[in-house]
Design a protein around this nucleic acid. Structure first.
Lengths: 341, 341
DNA sequence: AATTACCACGCAAACGTTTGCGGTAACGTT
DNA sequence: AACGTTACCGCAAACGTTTGCGTGGTAATT
């Protein structure tokens, strides 16, 4: 089977006896072209199965219709929902998406960013890697390309950010624990370089303060690499205290699952003796028994919103954008780890 | 801060007082250029932070260094490990990756494929959507572009395929069940249009036959959209049979988890009364209690291998490739759902 | 009838790179 | 001294598209 040659503007022009520029304008619905000509051109184009050469186009216009996405870890379920939202919205708006993973490695993150701009993406969507302290390389990119942060953001970077209401969500979760009678609520969080962790911690503190509960450093635990294992380890620490907590809020579902597993091993009754709350509403949270009370983050919506704002900036390259922070609402999902029916 | 103009070959040429072509050749290590000139050019290029305009290049050479990936569902953990492998290997070889999701929608799948080729990818990596019956559109693409199938493949499409040893893996899993004394082993699978399901079913049948066990259609259950819910439903069906199974093999971890959940609700002892085996070694399989015996699929390796073969074909466009099927070995992970310590 | 206005279209340049071909100088060979 | 060879390098075309500008023609206005 022979490869039929790909049609070009030139071919269409010749077959119709008109010029290349007319064909181009006709296809782009330029006002200078009469309706009849447009019809004829479009008909033939469709007939020949014409597709514009994206490289000639990008070459000429410096527009690629590709957006770059950098995420720390693609295997997290929540991340995939973000990506799904990005993919859908981008596709809707005629954009393609290039994804890369920084593996929570700051150097790799800047490297990824650089190859992306080298590659000619129109804009970048980024979720920051942990421990991103050196912002200079990111700032440098910002005056080359539109950049929007999502999910894992940073106050220090002056750009539009799309996140969830981390602080408020946590506040609500802690308040829920207080409402069911818990008074000594522990938290398992990450170090201070994690955006999400800090925001959630703020919500935790505010909830305690506003309810006149004491803040006890002994039950505020920070770990570097939060995970199920760390959840287990920290639970052992907490439950060997003299004053044990009566609730544990883990900043992550997987850590919370580690908490539950260890509590069960220690024969601690959930939620009567210790209640547990996670964050993310991952699939796992419904598999563990008791099922985990957690905060549902609408990943798809976050991703889609981020794309919308990015394309907005791409289309208005010279405007100065006020660096909005868009907060997407999340929902507390109450399950058996805090509330027994 | 002003955007410093992006350097081009022309600039380098002018500053060095040589021609554009010489600069181009020097950077591409062409043999016609003297070492000294190469040194000078490369030094200045590095100094100016020169990056070739990918569009001019792609425009000229018809090579994009992008590979397209189409997967049915990006939110499955196993899929993300595949993608991680693809991303890593591609990056290593200087390729960028465009991902799109077919959502198990056949029409969307062909649409995705078309926009990919329209977009000028150098090759495509695809994991087939369920129920892909109309192969014609895929075949049409195959003589335009290199295509490699991975994970969800099809014997009917004549191209290189990278899969795991589905049949053998299942055979081993069933044999393990037989070894622990099980004799009436049920299977929960998908309909006959799922590649993975069929392969696994073949392994199931072979294991039973070679061990002289009867094949009973009553405990061979097929569903369209396999999931945890379906696992639950099918378990209820199986456990209300007169002759109940003493083991259930579910073609998917999530279905297997549904099985376990329902068995626990029915107060059936696992694994003494009924053992359970899944497939994939997803994270969930270690969260459910008892932990699930399952088959670990090395997703990253599959992804990386697929990329290697694809780039091989991209670099030798005119060779006829024998349509190899590469089988990556998987491992049976024995846990408490079949074997109690 | 002369001017103006507008519509519809064509010409040609430009984007940055690669590459076939031709050319010059230097050197070695006969 | 004439010729062939080699090593380096430049010229210019080509890839397909967009777009500023120019132009012929027709209709509307004066």
């Amino acid at each position: 089977m022979m490869k039929n040659k790909i049609p070009t503007l030139k071919e269409i022009a010749e077959k119709l006896g008109i010029s290349i520029s007319t064909v181009s304008r006709a296809l782009n619905d330029h006002q200078d072209i009469s309706e009849v000509t447009k019809e004829r051109v479009k008909a033939l184009a469709a007939d020949l199965n014409y597709i514009p050469n994206i490289f000639a186009k990008g070459f000429r216009t410096h527009k690629t219709n590709i957006i770059g996405v950098v995420v720390p870890n693609i295997t997290h379920y929540f991340t995939t929902t973000l990506i799904r939202g990005i993919l859908e919205e981008a596709s809707l708006q005629g954009y393609r998406v290039i994804i890369s993973e920084s593996n929570n490695d700051v150097d790799k993150q800047t490297e990824m960013l650089n190859t992306m701009i080298q590659f000619g993406v129109d804009g970048v969507l980024m979720s920051l890697s942990k421990m991103t302290r050196d912002i200079s390389s990111i700032l440098k990119i910002m005056n080359t390309l539109p950049l929007i942060l999502f999910d894992k953001a940073s106050n220090k970077i002056p750009c539009t950010q799309v996140v969830i209401n981390e602080e408020e969500a946590t506040y609500n979760a802690i308040e829920h624990l207080i409402n069911i009678g818990k008074r000594r609520i522990a938290i398992i969080k990450e170090s201070e370089f994690s955006y999400n962790s800090e925001k959630r911690f703020e919500g935790y503190l505010r909830a305690l303060k506003e309810n006149n509960l004491p803040i006890d450093e002994k039950i505020i635990l920070s770990v570097d690499d939060i995970s199920m294992i760390q959840g287990k380890r920290m639970t052992n620490v907490l439950m060997s205290l003299k004053q044990k907590p009566d609730a544990i809020f883990a900043i992550t579902d997987s850590a919370a699952i580690g908490v539950i597993k260890t509590l069960k091993k220690l024969h601690v009754k959930i939620p009567e003796e210790v209640a547990v709350v996670g964050f993310s509403n991952s699939i796992n949270s419904t598999i563990i028994e008791p099922m985990l009370t957690t905060i549902d983050q609408p990943g798809q919506k976050i991703g889609a919103t981020a794309v919308k704002y990015l394309i907005e900036e791409i289309n208005h390259p010279n405007e100065i954008f006020i660096n909005k922070t868009i907060e997407i609402r999340s929902n507390l999902i109450i399950r058996n780890s805090t509330f027994k029916v």
